[in-house]
Design a protein around this nucleic acid. Structure first.
Lengths: 108, 108
DNA sequence: GCAATACTTAAGCACATGCTTAACAATCTG
DNA sequence: CAGATTGTTAAGCATGTGCTTAAGTATTGC
């Protein structure tokens, strides 16, 4: 089985890449749009995006000359799951509590 | 304000360091005990522990000639919190639930 | 068609990372 | 005290990371 935790955590260990993820939470964006807040060359940004894509955090497709990037739903799942497993025994009660909480209700 | 997300995610991006954290969830351990599962020199292990300690994930104290390492409660909190904030709007319902679970409480 | 736009590819460079071995403490044990 | 145990310090090395600039390749709009 392929373990991509190295790539996921590695991708998140860089502030520029985290900022890109934060931007993408608000919706898909082109490479240029993602590059705009940074004092960084476009190739630099593209390299960061490649890291995020290799980690499965982001996906992209090219339409015409524009590459649109978006978050992969659940792309952070492996990271969340791993961290969730490393709770101290003292914190375990909270885990059990969550099991008994009712599933999320319709909040409309 | 100092931002240690780089260090926390960076520390978790290495499989050896994650394995050490997994071991420490089951209780404190000496440097030698932590080193035992690895085909790695002791200085190598100590360097990994230094990364975990710099990230605030682990703490250690030396008694006699033995250094005992343990998890810092809530040391993974910054990572958990950041990931929790990057949920897609579609996943937002889960956020409300997590609000009731996150703060580490006094479990005495 | 021609120029502007939006990337892409390639190469290179400084610095960080993940190890190693060798040598050095410091502490316990018989 | 002598030797074994436990960790530390220092140095070095191969590889990875995070940029850069320069030059190229589609597309699109006039």
């Amino acid at each position: 089985m392929l373990n991509n935790l190295d790539e996921v955590f590695g991708a998140l260990s860089d502030a520029s890449r985290r900022a890109m993820v934060e931007r993408l939470v608000r919706g898909p964006a082109s490479v240029s749009q993602l590059a705009e807040p940074f004092a960084m060359s476009l190739p630099g940004v593209v390299q960061h995006l490649a890291v995020l894509e290799a980690a499965g955090i982001v996906s992209s497709h090219k339409t015409g000359r524009v590459r649109t990037v978006q978050l992969v739903p659940g792309g952070l799942g492996p990271a969340t799951a791993w961290i969730g497993r490393q709770r101290l025994p003292a914190e375990a009660r909270l885990d059990r509590l969550s099991v008994h909480l009712s599933p999320p209700e319709d909040l409309s």
